[in-house]
Simulated assay, not measured.
Amino acid sequence: MAAILAVGQVPPAEALDLERRRMLTATEHVPWRGVGRVNVAGLRDRSMCTGTLVAEDLVITAAHCVISPRTGKVQPVNDVYFVAGWRRGQKVASRRAIEITTHPGYAYAQNPGFDEIGADLALIRLDAPIPVAQAPFFAVGEPSEGKDALTLISYRRDRPHALTRQDGCDLRGSQGPVLALNCDVTFGASGSPIFADADGAPRIVAVMSAMGQDRATRKPLAFAVRVDHAMPEVLAAMR
């Protein structure tokens, strides 16, 4: 497959295709209100990632987004917040975490390999549900080779106050629960949902984990964990 480097340790591609990667307008933003920012606001750790509602009180994101890089341990729940539908100072809802569960096979690593990426998934239980009328949650689906290209929805550090949609994320390969995609990703995109169309409805099929290079072409690749593979084990580990 490819050499792996962690998200945040590889610069974005020098030339980005803006037709594939663009910020959503206010109207385009509405169907994606269930995607939000996962903010860590602790005394010593502060960070942002992207997360997605998969139930009214449950957010899916990358495990490394809720791990302290200083300690290697899960962040205190009081320091983790989910802000649904954040767009230029406006939000649909904000909730604090009351429970954070990472994949039982996940071990934090600054330069992850396939084992770490394949378990880089976490679920955040919110302190109160977010009603569907405010921010609908998304069902889980399966990626299918040969189907339409996938779509990445993310908050990027270079565009932290509005969602960016990137269409045409082609599947370049897979190894177990790990997908290799040709998406352009950068800081903040960790935990971002990757959607496939299923009978006209978006289904979340993977969560963005890391980025690296294709060994043969040296072109950037993005690596994501399949939700249908990893999520059942995280759910089983929840209290």
Score class of each variant (00 low, 15 high):
A109F: 02
A109Q: 13
G89W: 06
A97H: 02
R88E: 14
T101A: 09
G89N: 08
R87L: 06
R95Y: 02
I98V: 15
A107W: 08
E99P: 03
V92M: 13
W86K: 13
R96M: 06
A97Y: 01
E99F: 00
I98H: 09
Y108V: 00
H103W: 00
T102A: 12
W86S: 13
H103L: 02
V83K: 14
V80I: 06
Y108R: 08
R95K: 06
W86Y: 15
I98L: 10
Y81M: 13
H103Y: 01
Y81L: 12
R87E: 07
T102C: 14
Y108K: 07
E99L: 06
P104H: 05
A109I: 00
A93G: 07
V83W: 14
W86T: 01
F82E: 02
A93W: 08
A107I: 05
Y106K: 06
G85E: 09
A93P: 09
G85P: 10
R87P: 07
R96N: 07
P104F: 04
R95I: 03
Q90S: 14
S94E: 15
G105H: 06
Y106S: 03
R96K: 12
R88G: 11
I98P: 05
S94V: 07
A109M: 06
A93T: 11
R87H: 10
A109K: 12
Q90N: 14
I100R: 02
E99D: 11
G105N: 09
Y108H: 13
Y81T: 10
H103G: 04
D79T: 08
A97E: 03
Y81P: 01
I98K: 13
Y106P: 04
A84K: 08
A97K: 01
G105P: 05
G89T: 05
F82K: 06
W86N: 12
I100Y: 04
A109L: 08
V92R: 12
T102R: 14
T101M: 05
G89E: 09
A107S: 13
E99G: 04
H103T: 01
V83Q: 15
S94H: 10
D79K: 02
T102E: 12
A84V: 11
G85C: 09
S94F: 02
T101Q: 10
E99V: 01
H103C: 00
A107N: 13
E99Q: 12
R88W: 07
I100Q: 04
A93N: 11
G89Q: 08
P104L: 03
V83A: 15
Y81F: 15
S94L: 12
V80T: 03
Y81H: 14
A93S: 14
R95M: 03
P104Y: 05
R88H: 12
R88A: 12
R87F: 07
R88N: 15
F82P: 04
A93E: 12
Y106R: 04
K91C: 09
H103P: 02
T101I: 03
G105E: 08
G89V: 04
Y81N: 12
K91W: 13
V80Q: 10
R95G: 04
W86P: 05
G105C: 02
R95D: 05
G89Y: 07
I98Y: 05
A97I: 01
G85K: 11
